[in-house]
Design a protein around this nucleic acid. Structure first.
Lengths: 336, 336
DNA sequence: CTGAAAGCGCTTACAG
DNA sequence: CTGAAAGCGCTTACAG
């Protein structure tokens, strides 16, 4: 590949002149400029980014740390992924994908390699080791998610605790006293997946406060059989459940609706159904009330925030931004 | 961030000694080694990757060029994406995500930046500009897909033409003479999306040869209404259709099945249904015969091939590998 | 067993 | 208006 030296030689000028022509940081005689440009074009010259980065210039690359677990839902992931990448693209940034079960060393490695200007965190745990590592790095870290150890990073997330509270407040106002939270797979909670846990715990607590019984059932899977088993257990424990909050996905919710129908339980007459912490429910045959994830909003804001930091407009590490979810009423949650 | 100089200073040795201790490329006295290691640990030293890359060492990063269109199905994408990334990870490679509607300049830019060791292509068009650009680059390009201008790259793909032929051969053998191919959105074909076109054209051609009428209908969308409209048109044009090949996705196929049921058309008694060029149909209520995409197989092979090239084990640019699809019989395609 | 120095491909003060 | 040279942080022949 042609280097700056080749261009300089072909144009018959010094390499610094070539550099200045390319960068435009110095005015160059017209004749010289033309010669250089012609030579550059002829050789297909493009400056080697490595050399520039070595000199401390921004790499225009953001690392995206998104650990993969057995319970990772790919299509789920993709949405956040693309949202971040598209937004970053606007600023001329590319995304370096980091897939690693354990994020810590990986993060240090990438940060000190000098290959990226900043790091984005996805799939944040309640107590996330990556947030601690962040303190030792010399590049900014922005999380889409809100870990409890957030003081070394910037955090952007939906206000899931508020969502949990509001869900139960709404239920209570509508007369529901027995609520079932149909959750994602148990592992996701045990690992401490940030948003699932925050929503659930806030809902349970609000239930205690308001005298609403909130039962939680993680799922063993999203298939019809799994859902049936889960419902059997739930109704056996509490036959008065009148609201099911699904903290899951389209496939699961679709099966919940089908199973209820098979049991001759009408939605919303007998049981109300609310989807929370979800998105991409467009494929559902029946539309359900939803407190959606809004991945585009949080991801866009996370990237914008990263840019503010990189541009030196702010340096308040530990900053947390919690965006409100917009309740989508679609007729599956009614008074009881 | 601590550099090699800091470590050398703290350990009281030369920077070359530090370098050799870190790389292990020279035997170093035990005492010296210990001092260096201690200093490195104390300072949290990690070699700056940029500097190494500048010296021509591999960056251990692969670019992934995956243009985004309006009709891009994110969850679709994610599968290929993750498959490539996971495989690359095995070799210690990370993925630099390139999202760009038009791939050409972007590719040159990245290649000459020196940031990546090779480039992977996804969402390959029938005649893909990126394959032409590849010839001017000094790093290898491997496509998951098979463009017609494949001589400047390495190609790995399923043998979609063979799939198209086999689908019609099978249909013919089972007595079907009127086949409908329910396709993806028209734009995907007009842009020349490689696999869709190859499968369809090979199927149509084989139909001509065998005397099987093969009608093609692109979709206007994957919703129930879209499917109904498409079926109306198709049956109006040819009431004898006895096999529908869906070149689409789970949502669409699910709607096709539902629409047929609504019309009191039994599958497979009245009409057989075959999914082709699909994957992730696990969420379908009814399992259908399938000639699946097998993204893991093609992506894994593509990465393996890239590694063979990077390791200098091969240099037969233009090489094409077409993997066979495995027919999955599930009872929705029967004799007519 | 270890060190001083060249060089990777650029950018940018410093000179002229 | 242009050029010679230092330096970014490493690695590796070349010396000792």
């Amino acid at each position: 590949m042609a280097g700056i030296k080749d261009v300089a030689a072909l144009a018959g000028v010094s390499i610094s002149t070539v550099s200045y022509v390319m960068s435009g940081k110095r005015s160059i005689g017209d004749a010289t400029k033309k010669k250089v440009l012609a030579a550059a074009k002829e050789l297909g010259y493009m400056p080697n980014a490595q050399a520039r980065f070595l000199r401390g210039e921004p790499t225009k690359v953001l690392a995206l740390s998104s650990p993969i677990h057995e319970y990772t839902d790919y299509s789920n992931y993709a949405v956040f992924f693309f949202a971040l990448a598209m937004r970053a693209k606007r600023y001329g940034y590319d995304i370096l994908l980091l897939m690693h079960e354990y994020g810590d060393q990986e993060l240090s490695r990438i940060a000190s390699s000098g290959m990226v200007d900043g790091i984005l965190l996805l799939d944040v745990l309640m107590c996330d080791a990556r947030a601690d590592v962040a303190k030792t790095l010399d590049i900014p870290v922005v999380a889409v998610g809100y870990p409890s150890n957030s003081d070394g990073i910037y955090s952007v997330d939906l206000d899931f605790e508020r969502m949990g509270r509001e869900a139960i407040e709404k239920a209570h106002a509508l007369g529901h006293r027995h609520v079932l939270i149909a959750g994602s797979e148990r592992n996701a909670y045990e690992d401490g997946s940030n948003y699932l846990v925050r929503f659930r715990d806030a809902a349970v607590k609000k239930g205690d406060d308001l005298g609403v019984s909130v039962m939680f059932k993680p799922s063993t899977g999203f298939g019809r059989d799994d859902v049936n088993l889960m419902l059997d257990e739930a109704f056996a424990e509490d036959s008065e459940i009148s609201l099911i909050i699904c903290q899951t996905n389209a496939a699961h919710i679709s099966n919940v609706l089908a199973c209820l129908q098979a049991r001759a339980i009408k939605v919303p007459e007998d049981v109300s159904v609310l989807a929370a912490c979800t998105y991409g429910l467009g494929s559902l045959p029946k539309r359900v009330d939803e407190m959606p994830m809004m991945p585009n909003e949080t991801c866009s804001r996370a990237v914008d925030l990263m840019m503010e930091v990189l541009e030196g407009k702010r340096s308040d590490v530990g900053h947390v931004e919690l965006l409100p979810s917009r309740y989508q009423a679609r007729g599956t949650v009614t008074a009881h």
